[in-house]
Amino acid sequence: MDLQWMAWTLETGVFFGVIASLIAAYTVWGVVSPSTPRRGLLPMPTTRGDRLFLGLMGSAWINLAWLGLTEASQWVAVVLSLLFMLVIGRWG
C-alpha cells in the first residue's frame, strides 16, 4: 500500500511507535495484572490507563507551553514531560 500521501517522517514514525508500544504494553499489563482504581496525588481515583492518558495529555501541554512561552531548547520540555509522566504514573 502506498502511504506517500501520509507524508511520513522518521520522527513522526518514532513518535507513533512509542505511543503504540505504550498502549500495547499497558494492554498486556492490564490483562496479566488487572488495575483497580486508587487515589494518589490526583483529586480523583484513577486506574493505570487513566494515569497513562493523563500523563500523555499533560506531556503534550508541557511541550506546547514550552514552545509558546520560551525560546529554550525543546529537549528541556521533553525531559520535564517524561518526569511528569513518571510522577503521574507512580504517585498520581
Binding site: W5, M6, A7, W8, T9, E11, T12, F15, F16
Partner: peptide, 10 residues
C-alpha cells in the same frame, strides 16, 4: 489524525 501529525512538522 496521524496524517495531520505528519503534516504539522513539515
Amino acid at each position: 489524525l496521524m496524517t495531520v501529525v505528519n503534516y504539522s512538522v513539515q
